[in-house]
Deep mutational scan, measured.
Amino acid sequence: MPSETPQAEVGPTGCPHRSGPHSAKGSLEKGSPEDKEAKEPLWIRPDAPSRCTWQLGRPASESPHHHTAPAKSPKILPDILKKIGDTPMVRINKIGKKFGLKCELLAKCEFFNAGGSVKDRISLRMIEDAERDGTLKPGDTIIEPTSGNTGIGLALAAAVRGYRCIIVMPEKMSSEKVDVLRALGAEIVRTPTNARFDSPESHVGVAWRLKNEIPNSHILDQYRNASNPLAHYDTTADEILQQCDGKLDMLVASVGTGGTITGIARKLKEKCPGCRIIGVDPEGSILAEPEELNQTEQTTYEVEGIGYDFIPTVLDRTVVDKWFKSNDEEAFTFARMLIAQEGLLCGGSAGSTVAVAVKAAQELQEGQRCVVILPDSVRNYMTKFLSDRWMLQKGFLKEEDLTEKKPWWWHLRVQELGLSAPLTVLPTITCGHTIEILREKGFDQAPVVDEAGVILGMVTLGNMLSSLLAGKVQPSDQVGKVIYKQFKQIRLTDTLGRLSHILEMDHFALVV
């Protein structure tokens, strides 16, 4: 994948999101292997301009796509893939009243899908469409860049269908997702969380590099694949309309690839034109409109599966009536509230959605109805927002919020430890010299600072030695090549209790 991002070429006709291997024109390309080798690009942008032909009021008969309808489940399912879809609609009884809503608040519980998330729908649909058009064949390999849930859905379907599955996901995604993927037989590649989507090191860039190296491999490409919004247009939206008897006044959905909100909203605009569509985008993402909503100094966020630093091709923002931004604290607070007060075992993005819903639905009156999409299960986040310690460490809970008995030293300040200034190293000294210094002084790690004293990161003896043994660096290389740029900081005025929580999850903390 090139470091400079080429513009994806656009073909003359058809839909841009065809499933299957992508040609340089962004659509299915038939021909000899030699032709494909000559024409197939190194990668295709996940934010390529959409060429979708959908228009409100256009006859369904003019759609270029294969459409399906929700099917009634048999008493005995032939395999677990038949437990994807037909998820329950559940009334939220307490939270709406707590925040003064007059309307009825309903939750579409997508964590009841077989793999635990709304992404099971698009995973199965992308595979079925690729099999139907002859792209996927027995023994082929599926590769997908994902925040985890699409990966789980694909790995689940691949396990049943017999495909090899490789999932490329950023490091910030939970260990629970990784464990589930491994249990399903998927191979996992992790990428830096802070890598831009168009960087060769991003999950998108690495996935395309693997595709170019592995024979008979395919990126189904949830960011561009029409099967993504079509899955929701054909099934999720129809289920909502049936469950609500066609009567709903507002739908609120958090947005990642945009397939969920695009597919549902398009069908609702056709069948229930008075329904307002509300999009939820986390602070630090750029999906919301108008652009002024996205202006923030924050560039990272903890909530998973929603928000991006690019506009995915499948996201149709014209069908969203209003956007709201959400933050991590309210997302996790509301997710825990949904679990504790409503018994809905949902993930953090569901918290984002409901946090926005109780604001947006203030305009609705008694007798009206708001539906929220709860995308995934708490299963993926047992060591994250479900953990009091994690919430404390991230600053989303305060010590006084917890009532468990603490040891005698818990409320003492870090400054009472009488710490001395640490050994520091410059980023320009060599790895070999740094190892000598650390061994001589008896230290395992040291902060790396520039000549102005600005902290650049941390270097550890173990990481340097393993990097040297693996051949990633040489003793003569500058130590700046092996620094940890993500590390926890703590102030002298913070409590030892807070430091204790940090050290339970990290090997060190830097006192500043």
Score class of each variant (00 low, 15 high):
A158T: 15
G263S: 04
C165I: 06
E131S: 12
K102G: 02
T146Q: 11
F197C: 02
I219Q: 02
K25V: 07
D86C: 06
L220Y: 02
S23V: 02
P200W: 09
Y163E: 05
A237W: 04
K36R: 14
G258E: 06
P46Y: 02
M173G: 05
M126W: 07
V90N: 02
K108S: 06
H65R: 02
K247C: 14
K119I: 02
S63R: 02
F111V: 02
E9R: 08
K172T: 04
K97Y: 09
P64L: 07
V90D: 02
I261C: 09
I264C: 14
N228S: 02
P74K: 15
W43C: 11
E144A: 02
S63I: 08
P145G: 10
T13P: 09
R196N: 10
H22W: 06
G96C: 13
R51L: 05
A38I: 02
P78R: 02
L268T: 13
S217A: 06
A186M: 02
P49G: 04
P33L: 08
G85I: 02
P6R: 02
G162C: 02
S3G: 12
I44F: 12
A157M: 09
Y233M: 02
H203K: 07
K72S: 02
P64W: 02
P49V: 09
L248E: 02
E144G: 02
V10M: 12
P273K: 12
R276V: 11
M169V: 07
G263I: 02
E239L: 02
P46I: 08
A231G: 06
G26P: 05
A114Y: 06
N216P: 06
T87Y: 02
R132T: 14
G115A: 14
G246T: 13
G100P: 02
S73W: 09
S175V: 10
I143V: 02
T191A: 02
I80A: 05
H17G: 14
N225V: 02
V160D: 02
A183T: 09
R209F: 06
I44L: 09
S217C: 05
A186H: 02
R91A: 07
G162V: 02
P170H: 02
V189I: 07
L156S: 06
T13W: 02
E40R: 05
K97E: 13
S254R: 02
V160H: 04
W43P: 09
N225P: 06
P46L: 06
